[in-house]
């Protein structure tokens, strides 16, 4: 049948797409395994010349990656839970608000989503400097107060509005306050979307480069992104070392995402 030909063409295209999207990441790993200081390869090599794991150890000799990792972990440990709570509350408010209030909150989120962060760098910097928070981790954590990005609020709103509204109305008849309804009804049902948002927020804060670049001046306060940048200024052409460090910085969010992807696609977005 023709539909089966179509299906296999589709399958082929999916494999091609996945290959194109994943290959660069495989190259990141391959490149990190090449012995440093060797002459350029003669043509393409799948197994790197002088295959070695030592680059991973040697990264720590160039930069204090352990300190950077600790700082990044402190940031995500505070920012991720706050993001999930703020996004969950706001998403719940959107889902159960009157049509008017809902439209306003969605419009507010969409407008906020549209504003380029780069336009806010300077005034935010001035504000945090005025508050005396420069060279602390607080400016890095602060975006969690606005749910990191309104996208996460909209994800929660989408997931809550899929629940039957009679569920919340029934809880209201039990004389629960809005917070009580969130706490007793909505929140227990939001594990998948909370996990998805947590993983995305983790990735966002982990990768955040501009904020530590702007706010952190002391070497021992840097996070992993700026640490990678520091390594690049030290060893601009030592690709194996740079890639080994990149792999170590990339692995946590990638592993977290792959572990949570079912929550994200199937349960949050409803895409089976």
């Amino acid at each position: 049948m023709r539909s089966s030909a179509r299906r296999s063409l589709r399958g082929f295209l999916i494999v091609a797409l996945a290959t194109v999207f994943v290959t660069p990441l495989l190259f990141m790993v391959l490149g990190s395994l090449r012995a440093p200081g060797l002459p350029p390869p003669d043509g393409f090599e799948l197994v790197p010349q002088g295959f070695t794991w030592s680059n991973y150890r040697n990264v720590f000799a160039f930069v204090p990656l352990g300190t950077y990792l600790t700082n990044s972990l402190i940031v995500v440990a505070i920012a991720v839970p706050v993001t999930v709570l703020v996004a969950s509350w706001a998403g719940f408010a959107i889902a159960v608000a009157s049509p008017r209030a809902r439209r306003r909150l969605i419009a507010l989120s969409v407008v906020a989503l549209m504003i380029p962060l780069s336009a806010l760098w300077v005034p935010r910097f001035v504000l945090f400097k005025w508050l005396g928070l420069v060279d602390t981790l607080w400016p890095l954590i602060a975006p969690a107060l606005m749910a990191t990005t309104p996208f996460y609020v909209l994800l929660f709103a989408l997931s809550y509005s899929r629940l039957p509204s009679t569920l919340f109305e029934a809880a209201r008849l039990e004389n629960l306050s809005p917070f009580g309804i969130w706490r007793k009804v909505a929140w227990p049902l939001s594990a998948p979307v909370a996990l998805a948002v947590a993983v995305l927020a983790f990735g966002w804060h982990w990768a955040n480069f501009i904020d530590p670049l702007l706010y952190l001046t002391s070497g021992d306060k840097q996070t992993v992104s700026v640490g990678l940048r520091a390594l690049q200024t030290l060893e601009p052409t030592n690709h194996p070392i740079l890639l080994a460090a990149s792999v170590m910085v990339t692995a946590p969010p990638v592993i977290a995402f792959l572990a949570a992807q079912r929550s994200f696609f199937v349960k949050t977005l409803g895409v089976r």
Partner: peptide, 27 residues
């Protein structure tokens, strides 16, 4: 195939920008 492909299409987005830039610098 599709449900295996979806996370893979999202994967490069999860890579931190700096690591992603260093990767392309090498590529």
């Amino acid at each position: 195939t599709a449900s295996a492909g979806r996370p893979l299409a999202y994967l490069p987005t999860v890579v931190p920008d700096v690591a992603y830039a260093l990767l392309w610098l090498w590529l």
